[in-house]
Nucleic acid binder design. Structure first.
Lengths: 256, 256
DNA sequence: TCACCAAGAGAACGGCGTTCATTAAGATAT
DNA sequence: ATATCTTAATGAACGCCGTTCTCTTGGTGA
């Protein structure tokens, strides 16, 4: 442990006037060399902290203690990085073997799982909406969702649309959830409360609807109750059920 | 018309070495003073030419022959401008008086109209997806859509979701249409062909699906035919019909 | 004629995505 | 042990962005 045992030329200590070189980046790199994986991970950290609008290559680089340009050795562009993040969403995701007798439940499970994955990172729905899962890596997931619909007995034309329809619904729903969340956050101040105050938000909305001119918005007023009292989960299931019923109507025996 | 009749101090002509001052901006401004309307119009021009990613305040200002900062006298931010563009989409839009016997047709018409409006400007679906029509100005439209659902006899919980569901479907569908369009455009080169080559695109996709390992993607292979041969309009109507059937299943008499 | 005013110009700030030449460190060959 | 090559990261630069601030200018009413 004692240094200078041999004649190994120890570099002289830096003179006081010369700025100490930043050694930390190198040290960090030695601990864990940069990689696509590490970059994606850092990107998720930045995403959760600052949202999609605050997700810049510079922030990601900063998170890793590295310069921006270093990232471009592993990632060809910001779009590339976003696509990696999108693909990440599918990791370890698997649909069950299609069971014609349980196809509704299987689709429900798919939908709930997918929604919870979208909710697991801030603004993830925005990223998801900007992508189509038609890369070689993701096609298997599309395939197994289609398998469920076809096994259920849906006509080809219906099955072909069903996947898109369900996925679009989920993305859109979560996207809106996020927008209300953001709106709530920006009202309570710049800070990002872990859980936005739904109660307060709902009350405010309720009041707003109730304050609308009586004669002009009868339906909005009438529905403001259920819009506000129903939880997000309930509303999600309702929309999902509407789609499932629509799909089921194309089956020879809709009772299935 | 003759100048210098009186002692009005005419400014000397600009010396040859000094850059001629740009007079055109001023002239243009005199012709038609800036306004929110003119700014929105210019923004649409830029949007159609360069897409949402190319829509910058600087480009809009350039389109008007004006400096960036001038815009900020009329528009408080870029977000504000985007919201104006979004609101523009609703101009002159009107839903018919709800007719319980024709509610499906009324919803279909609403959906087709809305889709065609989204298609009328490049990337408009992206802008639409980022907004909720819950501003004072747009609530009447929401109201009259809800009116159709309620008049049809849908339960409140269902009617409350139906508006969101349909709107999300339309936005999502058009968004995807745009993505395929962009993908096609970037393959044929930087140029922006007015109508992307659907035929070629479809063939290419068909080939891709057909080239997939036989055993691994039976459903994708089986459905690639209908996915490709059906026109966008047909696919849109199919998805819409699925939703309408789902909604109808909540009516006492689903035959309506 | 002069003071005022609204509208727009112009410059600047900090941040962005991306590229490029350069450098430090380790591995390899002589 | 030394010279060479490779790799991985740096740091500076380019051109663009949204936004703000100060300044100019042309027209208006007293």
């Amino acid at each position: 442990m004692s240094d200078a045992a041999e004649g190994t030329p120890v570099p002289p200590p830096p003179s006081p006037w010369e700025r100490e070189r930043p050694r930390r980046a190198r040290v960090a790199a030695a601990r864990a060399p940069l990689s696509r994986e590490r970059i994606v991970e850092a990107a998720f950290t930045v995403l959760d902290r600052s949202g999609l609008d605050g997700l810049s290559m510079r922030q990601v680089a900063g998170e890793l203690g590295v310069t921006v340009s270093a990232l471009y050795a592993y990632v060809s562009s910001k779009d590339d990085l976003l696509e990696l993040m999108y693909t990440r969403l599918f990791d370890g995701f698997s649909l069950p073997e299609p069971d014609p007798d349980r196809w509704r439940e299987q689709v429900r499970e798919y939908a709930r799982t997918w929604r919870s994955r979208l909710l697991s990172h801030r603004d993830m729905a925005r990223i998801s909406m900007a992508h189509v899962p038609f890369t070689a890596e993701l096609l298997p997931y599309v395939e197994s969702l289609l398998a469920v619909f076809r096994a259920a007995g849906l006509p080809d034309r219906i099955a072909a649309e069903a996947g898109d329809l369900i996925s679009t619904y989920i993305d859109g729903f979560v996207l809106e959830e996020g927008m209300w969340q953001d709106r709530a956050a920006e009202q309570t101040g710049g800070g990002t409360p872990a859980r936005p105050d739904w109660r307060e938000m709902a009350d405010e909305m309720q009041n707003y609807f109730a304050s609308l001119p009586e004669g002009d918005f009868p339906h909005l007023r009438a529905l403001s109750g259920v819009m506000v009292t129903d939880s997000s989960d309930e509303r999600f299931d309702i929309g999902l059920e509407i789609i499932l019923r629509g799909l089921a109507s194309y089956l020879p025996d809709p009772s299935a």
